[in-house]
Amino acid sequence: MKLVAEILIGVVAIEHIYILWLEMFAWTTRGRKTFRSLAPELFEPTKALAANQGLYNGFLAAGLIWSLLIDDSAWRVNVAYFFLGCVIVAGIYGALTAQKSILFVQALPAIIALLAVLLS
């Protein structure tokens, strides 16, 4: 189960690296295709805001990757709990305030990973 938990943490980290790329570097190109609910004229003026948001997603990914590199099992689990919890809270907040799909795309994978960590 530990391997499953680590794989799921890795998947959530990779997802947040993708979000970092999308929001920091591809907001006005790929972002338009991904976030269709936003008016096209909003992408250029919100480029800096999206980049800031992408940076935060990068911090989440870095914390999740860090949790996979820690030798001490207690610290590893606690760091994983913290960063998965952050992703879950961000996903729930995003689903309540922005798009409902964020609950399934962001929060649900983190919830599943957290359950795997709890069971390992």
Rank of each mutant, 00 (worst) to 15 (best):
residue 68 L to Y: 05
residue 62 A to E: 12
residue 11 V to I: 15
residue 72 D to Y: 01
residue 48 A to E: 08
residue 120 S to H: 12
residue 74 A to M: 02
residue 56 Y to F: 11
residue 70 I to G: 15
residue 23 E to C: 04
residue 48 A to C: 07
residue 73 S to D: 15
residue 2 K to N: 13
residue 65 I to M: 13
residue 72 D to Q: 13
residue 112 I to P: 03
residue 113 A to T: 01
residue 41 E to V: 01
residue 75 W to D: 05
residue 106 Q to Y: 02
residue 86 C to S: 09
residue 120 S to Q: 14
residue 89 V to H: 04
residue 92 I to W: 03
residue 28 T to M: 08
residue 27 W to R: 02
residue 41 E to C: 07
residue 8 L to I: 06
residue 72 D to H: 05
residue 30 R to D: 00
residue 28 T to F: 04
residue 1 M to D: 12
residue 116 A to D: 15
residue 20 L to N: 01
residue 19 I to P: 11
residue 56 Y to P: 05
residue 91 G to S: 14
residue 6 E to W: 06
residue 60 L to P: 02
residue 78 N to K: 10
residue 72 D to S: 05
residue 89 V to P: 09
residue 22 L to Y: 03
residue 45 P to V: 05
residue 49 L to G: 12
residue 107 A to E: 09
residue 53 Q to K: 13
residue 46 T to K: 14
residue 46 T to A: 13
residue 49 L to V: 14
residue 14 I to L: 14
residue 119 L to N: 13
residue 48 A to W: 11
residue 4 V to Q: 15
residue 100 K to Y: 13
residue 42 L to N: 10
residue 96 L to N: 11
residue 42 L to T: 15
residue 81 Y to W: 15
residue 42 L to C: 07
residue 3 L to A: 14
residue 53 Q to P: 13
residue 30 R to L: 04
residue 15 E to F: 02
residue 92 I to Y: 00
residue 27 W to T: 01
residue 5 A to E: 04
residue 74 A to H: 09
residue 87 V to C: 03
residue 95 A to W: 02
residue 60 L to Y: 04
residue 31 G to H: 00
residue 36 R to V: 14
residue 88 I to T: 00
residue 96 L to F: 07
residue 31 G to C: 02
residue 34 T to P: 03
residue 78 N to C: 10
residue 7 I to W: 02
residue 31 G to F: 01
residue 53 Q to A: 11
residue 108 L to V: 12
residue 14 I to S: 14
residue 25 F to K: 07
residue 17 I to E: 03
residue 97 T to P: 10
residue 38 L to E: 10
residue 56 Y to A: 09
residue 15 E to R: 08
residue 86 C to W: 06
residue 7 I to V: 15
residue 68 L to Q: 13
residue 39 A to D: 10
residue 102 I to T: 07
residue 7 I to P: 00
residue 59 F to R: 07
residue 39 A to P: 09
residue 25 F to P: 05
residue 59 F to Q: 01
residue 18 Y to Q: 06
residue 60 L to T: 00
residue 9 I to D: 09
residue 15 E to C: 12
residue 84 L to I: 10
